[in-house]
Structures are given as structure tokens and as C-alpha cells.
Design a protein around this nucleic acid. Structure first.
Lengths: 215, 215, 215, 215
DNA sequence: GATGAATGAGGATTCATTCAT
DNA sequence: TATGAATGAATCCTCATTCAT
């Protein structure tokens, strides 16, 4: 009966919803970038998406959920684009090159998805941090831990890896903020400084199974 | 009462005003710490200070101004406590020691004035950043630049100093966030990592007029 | 499929429609019980029924209509189960027994159909009372009037019968609320009190064609 | 210093607030009567009071609080007007007269304060019942229990008194609804029926220390 | 100076209902 | 029929700021 069209009918309906969701997420990204997460209002997002507030709430139960979904998709994009590891784990790669690759990739990714930065810098709140940012943060952190696991000496304590990852992510986030607030050659200079800071920070920690450290 | 010592009247009034301001700033600090700058409401600050909203607005034109004044006083406190340079610039001091001293001092200062952190991490907003945080940031940055000026080789380009200062401040802020979100020995470990990250980042930059670099 | 038995098609459709209606009414009953009529949302009813909001509106023009139909069916059920009169009108039955029978039946009916209570206690609204509750109320009232007609002396004024019926129904509704808010022996005690209140209220009104009044 | 005016200054300020509160409560009473508690919106109450929504929330934290305060003041009014006991407890008073007095007083009170009825009939919700109605209900119930304590035989079980009070209040509430939905002589007739129902219900329960029961 | 009442636009969210598919 | 997306006014409530006293 429905054999021929049965799969497409629902698909078309779902497709509309999926399109709306995409639309809403894009609007949300835009608004988050423009005003930050805290100041972003659901009404503004709906308006930006050209729909009514009610429509937004048909797809997301609340503002937080939008940010979470946005973060999720962002991480998937990141994975799809640069793979799980974010960088080549070829033992022969010098640390500086590995770091540079990761920084370049993350920076390029942020250029493509400016909301990445907006989401990473959670709201003002103390301790709390919204679930959305937490999720994004945790996810990123995991990737970095994985990456570090292949750089640091085999026997390194788990807690040390985590701590190191936290510091690296912190340095990167702080650096990204600077990168974004500058332009042209100065911006490039900041990118280089992030790489320097990370490389130098990690250099004494990596085992000598890596290529020769920076001269 | 009102008849005697006509000259003391204004003085007393000013004193009263100063007390009020102090009161309000302390309340603001408390509220900023508890809820973050964005979520802090002027009404909540007034309530915490035990005065009416109207009174608050008799001393500060708006929320922003409170943060600015708070930041100003914080910077003065910092200067009063640790001097302009934040650390001894004795050329003989090894870099690691100088960095450790600065980090310890800033961290101790933050412990004494928890709102320091809250103000440094401005609101969510994009680029803009509120004037208050900007001011605090700029002030801190200036101190760091001064500090770096004595560490980096004499002829270093002004722009390079500024850039380096930005990066250092960024690393410190990111690190402080981690320090504050941990406790006990883990917290200590993070403090050490901040020192490591900064020392290693600066090490190749400082001239050899400093004590021997970290072994 | 569509080719054969052209006559059965509509029948089957009607059957399907009837099933849907049943489904929706059961869902509505469930939601009305859980949240009350006012707070019940049509979306919630549709969800509970496992259909889309649109489907609900294909069978009922609005929320009110659902309640009305639900009330109607409830009254039919009541009639089907306990007959038109709700109780034996055997003149020999003592008043107390007749009252007890009616109360027990209504109470049992409410146990079987908890939404009965929810519908009887209409929304908050003033005077207005929604059509649905009005209908249920009127219907119940009619049954009680019929019942009373056989209890009160033959020549009793119609207005008096109606008034008495109103009072009896009021007492019963108030009592039912109490019954439902208690459990165990206390609940039984309340049931008994309803019977007492009604019996004593009616006792002086019934003619002596009934069995001996309560001692 | 302030001795003379010190008490009046604050008083005047508080007076404005108190006036506003009165105004808001009157507006709330009006809106509750017009639309019922559930449907009453805080904005509508503010509008009715001629103030902005914000003003309302300066005096009441939420809708519920308005109803609670309204109920409180209502109970105080009731107490102030008719005393704690609601009726003479003169042992010589015949039950019918005592009941009539209470019913008349409550009915008169409700005529003076129509919101009394609106508040007694809480929202639709199941079990829940808002705190406001609960409070009013409990308060009324207490008064009735006190009253009954002097009517029922001295040794009566506490639980029995409470149960009887519940039933009486239930009958009265149900009756009041009927009274309010009728006019003129019919309304009077309903008032009489409430008295009858209550008197007859209580008659077998009161000790013979009361005046002769109804003939 | 101090008070606290007043504002009113704006925030997130809900819901009965309609409509394109 | 059935779907579920779409609507948009309405809900409760907040907050920076102003103003009369």
C-alpha cells in the first residue's frame, strides 16, 4: 500500500522539522554570537529564525536545550572534519608541529563556526555553568585528553593527563579570545603565541618518543 | 546637634557617604561573587547593603559604575599590598621565582578578594565587554607590561611586550578558573601548573640578564 | 483494497473514528483526573491518546466538547449500570435504605470512573460554569428529581422538588470530595455521614408512604 | 531629634504602601470574583488596581500570596465582625436558632465580601489545592469545630468533631453556591434549606443540654 | 541623603487552535 | 484521516532605573 511512498511521506514531514531545527540553530548561533548566551532571548532567536516563539518551543524545551544541541552538532562537525584525534599522532611528528596543527584546526573551525567560541565561554554564573557549556567543554576536554595520552609518556597518571588537558584547553580558550579580538598580522601573531605557549608548556612533559622537541 | 561645629558637617557627610559607598561596594562584591556580574541585580545589591535602591543610585549612576569603582579599588588595594610591580625585579631572581611570586601574590589577593575573579571574567557579551572589566583588565595588563618590561630584553618592541602581557594574563585567568574549581592538593597542583606554563612560556623570551633559567 | 466492499468502507471508517473517539475520551479522562479540567491541555490529551493535536480537533471542535461528550457517555454508563432511577423506588423501602443505595451506587460509579468527580467539579469560573459541567450537572439533577418525585408526597410543587434535588446533589458532591480526600475507615465514616446527612435532610420531607423513617 | 515626627514619617511611607496593598487586594478580589482564582492573571489584577505589574510584585511575591493575604484579611474581618465563635453558645438556644444565626452571618458576610466564595472554591486542581484556599478552609474549619465543641456532647471524640465540621462546612459551601446562583424568594428558600439541612444533620448529634430540638 | 513605591518593557514559556501536507 | 508544524497572544515574573516624599 504505502510501500512506495511510505518511507518518504514521514521523511518529508520530518524533513520540514529538521529544516526548522537547522534554521533555529543557525538563528541561535547568530544571536549567541551577537549578544552572548546569557543575553540571548528565545524570542530573539525565534525572530531571527523568522518563526513565532511557539514554534521554537515545539523543537526545544528551553534555551538551554538549544545551546546543548548546538554544542552537540558542533562537536560532531568537529569530529567529522578533523577526526577524533584532532591531529596526527604520528610519533615522528615534532611536538611543535602537532600543536600547530591542532591550534590551526581549532582556529579554522572557530572561523567557520563562530558560535563555537560563544558557547565555550559559558555564562557569567559562578560554579553553575550551564549544562550546554559543560557538555561542550567536557567533550573537547576528552578529545584533548585522548590526544595527550599519545604524547605523554605511557605511564602518566590519569589525573595528570586530565590536569594537563585542562590547562591546555584553558590556554587555548584564553588565546582564542585574544585572536578574535585582533585582526590581520596581530591576529596571526597571537595564533603563533598560542602555539608557543602550548608547545613550551608541553615540551618538558612529552616523552622522547616524539620527534625532536623545538630547537 | 546641628548647631555646633558647622565645619565638621560636610566632613561628616562625606564620611557618611564614603561609608555608604564602602557598604555598597562590599554588598556588590558579595552579590557579584554569588551570582556573577550579569545576574547580579542592583536591587539585590541594595538589599544586601541594607539600603534602598534609591540610595544606591545616589552614589552610582548605574550597575556598571559599581563594577568600575569596585575594580578601581581592587586595583588600588593590589597596588597598596604588593606595590606597582607585583614582584621584585631584582635581575638576579630566577624567572621561575619571579613568576611564582607573582602568581602566589595574585592568587593570595584573589583569596582575600574573591570578587577579583568575578570581575575579571566579564559578562557573556561579545567583544564589547563592559567598561568595568575593560578597566580592570587594562589596569592589570599595564602592571604586567611593566613587569615584563624589566624581564624582557631592553630593546623589545612595545607591541611584543603588550602581546606577551595579554597572553600571560590570559594564561593566568584561565588557570585561576581551574584553581578555583578545585580543592586541596589538586588545587595546589593547578597553581603549580600555572607557574609552569608561564615560566616555560616566558623563558625563551627573557634576556639572559636574569638568573639562570629553570634547570 | 479500496476496491472491494464499497459499503463497508464507511462503516469501517466510522468504526475507526469511534475507536479514536474512545481513545481520546479515555485520554481526556486520564488527564482531567490528573490535572483537573482547567489545567488539562488539549495537547496533553492528544499526547496521552498517542495522536497528534490535529487528529483531536478532527473529532472535537474544542476542549469543551471533549468534556461534554465525556460527561454524556458517563451519564449513559450510569444509566446503563444502575438504571434510570438510580435506586429501587419500592414504596416499602425505608428512606435510609434508599438513600444508602443511591449513595453507594454513585460512589461505586465514581470509583469506576474517577473522572466523574473531576467533571462534576467544574472549573474555577464564576457563575458561568462550563457547558460540560452544566450538562452533567443537569443530567444528574434530572435523575435525582425523578427519584425524589417518587419519594416526596405526590402533590409536591415542582420547584420544591428541584430545590430539594439541588440541595441533595450539593450535599452529595461536597461529601464525595471529603470521601475522596480520606482513606480507610475514615473514608467509610464519611460515606456514612453523607448518608446520614441526606437521610435526615429528606426524612421530614418524604410522605409516609415510605417505610418507617429512621428511628 | 526626630521625636516629634519620627514616628509619622515612616508611617506616612508605610501608609502609601498599605494603601497600595489595600488597592491591590481589592482589585484582586474583584478579579477573582469576575474570573475565578485560576483564570485571574496578575496583570489583570494590576490593571484593575491601576498600577503596573511591577508594582504588584513589589508587595506580593506571586499570585498565591495575594490570595493568601486576601484570605487572611477576610478571616480577620469575619472574626472582628462576628467574634470568634460565629454564634451565641448560650446553652438555652435551640439548635435551629444557633444554626440559623451562623448561616445568616456567614451569608451576610459573603454578601459583603463576595470574594469569600471565590476563595473558598479553590482552583480546579486535584488534591493540590492552593495554600490560600487551604488556609481559608482550615481557618473556617477551626471556627466550626470550636462551635461544634460546644454543641456536641462533652465527651465527643475529636475525630468525630472534625468530621462533623467537615460535613457541615461542605453542606454550607454547596448551599452557598446555590444561594448565589438564585435570586429573590428562591434565594431565600435556599438559605432556608441550608439551615434545614444543617439543623437536621446535627440534631441527632447534639446533646440534650441544648434547647428543645426542632419540632 | 534616604526611602521605597513605581515603572514598563522584556524574559521564558504555554496553549488552544489552524493549516499545509 | 492523520500528522505535526505553526501561530501569537497571554501567562507569570524580573529588573534597571526614576521619582515623590
Amino acid at each position: 500500500m504505502d510501500t512506495a511512498t511510505g518511507r518518504e511521506q514521514p521523511r518529508r514531514r520530518q524533513a520540514r522539522g529538521e529544516r526548522r531545527i537547522q534554521q533555529l540553530l543557525e538563528a541561535a548561533a547568530s544571536v549567541f554570537c551577537a549578544t552572548g548566551y546569557t543575553a540571548a532571548s528565545t524570542n530573539a532567536i525565534a525572530r531571527e529564525a523568522g518563526v513565532s516563539p511557539g514554534t521554537l518551543y515545539q523543537f526545544f524545551p528551553n534555551k538551554e536545550a538549544i545551546a546543548i544541541e548546538l554544542g552537540d552538532r558542533l562537536m560532531h562537525d568537529l569530529r567529522d572534519t578533523y577526526g577524533e584525534a584532532l591531529a596526527p599522532v604520528d610519533p615522528a611528528t615534532p611536538l611543535a608541529d602537532a600543536v600547530a596543527a591542532v591550534v590551526d584546526r581549532l582556529t579554522a573551525f572557530n572561523t567557520d563556526h563562530p558560535v563555537f567560541f560563544a558557547l565555550m565561554h559559558g555564562p557569567d554564573m559562578p560554579g553553575g555553568i550551564t549544562e550546554a557549556h559543560d557538555a561542550l567543554h567536557t567533550s573537547l576536554l576528552g578529545r584533548i585528553e585522548t590526544l595527550l595520552a599519545s604524547l605523554l609518556p605511557p605511564g602518566t597518571d590519569k589525573a595528570d593527563v586530565t590536569r594537563t588537558a585542562h590547562i591546555c584547553l584553558g590556554i587555548y580558550k584564553a588565546g582564542l579570545e585574544l585572536v578574535l579580538s585582533h585582526e590581520g598580522t596581530e591576529q596571526q601573531a597571537y595564533i603563533q603565541e598560542i602555539k608557543n605557549a602550548l608547545t613550551r608548556y608541553l615540551d618538558p612533559l612529552v616523552g622522547d618518543h616524539l620527534g625532536q622537541p623545538v630547537g
